[in-house]
Design a protein around this nucleic acid. Structure first.
Lengths: 115, 115
DNA sequence: GTAAGTAGTTACCTACAGGTAAGTAAAATA
DNA sequence: TATTTTACTTACCTGTAGGTAACTACTTAC
């Protein structure tokens, strides 16, 4: 019965969904990921892309995304040290989820606001 | 160029994604939605499904989900007053997004933990 | 009358997300 | 020598998410 599915399958499903949510949640993660889908960028470039983020928050969120293997930080020891951030394979694999989030968000807006 | 897409299309995309995230984010929203995908339920039944939620949090989150038109609250004035919660069309339409969240969550776990 | 069930509410507390402002270090430029 | 650029860090503050515990109101069963 449905009861069995609920009790047996749900804890695992819940844990995975929660993991995914934890990675993309917060105010800045998605903007950062989207900023990097258009290619590798430097700290200052991301900062310009996302106008209202403070360097503290950007630094903090980049660190978190790096820990979760969503992005990689590459340091070039050129004359003025430059750092570049880019999406990993795992980061790129978020594409479908982000797309679905976007689609539902639009649907939500149409349903709530539109009528 | 990509630059143009970034600057023109992103603010709207971001807003929609953020809207969607706001609806499902937090510790209890997804568990509650999943609990209701298996049919309408009463307060006490959801409380039993999600063992560690407090009545305060359940009440609070049900109210928020109702405000966002994800669920409906139906009151039956039978002898002991009973209340039933069920998913709306909009709530049911979250299915694909939740599925995608689950799929990526599993992929994430395999990539991070598995190897 | 007392207990138990249904569906919550109220008051209070803590932890973390996020924000502001300023400081840091190293090299390039003027 | 002083200023600018890049990439941050540090200290401090506020607001919200979430938690605990106890209380409420109504009804049925014992």
């Amino acid at each position: 019965m449905a009861r069995e599915i609920t009790e047996v399958a749900c804890p695992h499903r819940l844990k995975a969904s929660r993991d995914a949510l934890d990675v993309i949640q917060g105010k800045w993660r998605i903007p950062i990921i989207i900023s990097l889908t258009y290619g590798k960028k430097r700290f200052g470039e991301i900062n310009k892309d996302i106008a209202d983020i403070s360097p503290k928050m950007l630094s903090q969120e980049l660190k978190a995304l790096e820990e979760n293997k969503i992005i990689v930080r590459t340091l070039y020891d050129s004359m003025p040290v430059t750092v570049e951030y880019s999406l990993t394979e795992l980061g790129l694999s978020l594409n479908k989820l982000l797309e679905e989030l976007l689609i539902w968000g639009i649907h939500f807006r149409e349903t709530i606001v539109g009528k």
